[in-house]
Design a protein around this nucleic acid. Structure first.
Lengths: 170, 170
DNA sequence: ACGGATCGTTTGTGTAGCGCCAACCATTTA
DNA sequence: TAAATGGTTGGCGCTACACAAACGATCCGT
């Protein structure tokens, strides 16, 4: 119905409604739903969503340093300590001093950690079914692959943005 | 192919590494990165990630009631009030009393709201490029579509979980 | 017409997640 | 030997919520 909205100086007709297709907000939205649902099924296992994220990352990149972990997780180093304390207290994760640089802690999943992670993932299936109910199994599969690939990229680290000024666009 | 997962009980040698393919944690992880990046590019527009989510939802389901909004957003009704206050104060959104039920407020995007949303989405492109750098443009497109479909489902509302007992699995 | 339920709103309380700062040890590096 | 670095601890503060209580306006069933 409405939506004529074109106005704006010139700007020819444009059917608007194209809406840019930004996945950021959708990602946020879906992640929130998933997180809320996950909390309940994870609680019995003594884990919280953020623990799961950490464990998942640790499985993929074994023997990572704490500060590298802070990088990929994008949380402050001091908070990584607390997070790992939780996990280590339950024997899911192991801190060892690095041989080449004895200041560093090399973090890795223990056997029971890997096991617990699998259990959690399995329990998560329930939550996932609720949240991704609108998707076919095949679609969920490709979604998983895309997320996997997207997250496995380099830690984004800190603004490698040299002297860029990409603003003027738009 | 994969997914032999036999385990159970003894668990012989198991090559493990099969890992269940749960997208929950990945979703969480990716959303966090995106949110962190988005905050900075959104700030100049006076918006925060959560406002963007709300606006996005509002664009798709125009004329929604506040409590329905609370449902899709999965946040408490009282918090929706504050959220809408922010948006209405900037004229991005409009509350009107519903004609058929005058208790209800019908919320909808204003013209300037839609405009601001598009601007924000455009600005978001920068953040998205950083975060989704590992994906090809075509892949980002399918990701968007999947997220779109996944979020457009019914509000999940509250546990329509009748007398289900899907736990025993796993 | 009355009473109970419902929608939105306000106010207040509590909690969790997290950034950030400062101090401190152990270690590495210049 | 002096500085820089990785981890740890403790503390401060903010933001996002959830939850509860109370209120006005309104709807609805009897």
């Amino acid at each position: 119905m409405f939506r004529a909205v074109r106005k704006l100086g010139h700007m020819p007709a444009l059917p608007v409604e194209e809406s840019e297709r930004r996945s950021g907000p959708l990602l946020d939205h879906l992640a929130r739903r998933m997180r809320l649902r996950s909390e309940s099924v994870l609680a019995p296992l003594g884990l919280r969503p953020r623990h799961l994220v950490a464990l998942t990352v640790l499985r993929d990149s074994a023997g990572i340093s704490q500060q590298a972990l802070a990088g990929t997780l994008q949380i402050d180093g001091t908070n990584v300590v607390g997070l790992l304390n939780d996990l280590e207290a339950e024997g899911l994760v192991e801190r060892r001093r690095s041989p080449e640089d004895r200041r560093r802690h090399v973090v890795s999943l223990t056997a029971t950690g890997a096991k617990r992670l699998r259990e959690a993932e399995c329990a998560l299936a329930v939550a996932e079914d609720e949240v991704l109910g609108a998707l076919e199994p095949a679609e969920r599969d490709t979604l998983y692959d895309l997320l996997r690939r997207a997250t496995s990229g380099r830690p984004v680290s800190c603004v490698e943005a040299s002297g860029d000024e990409p603003d003027p666009i738009c």
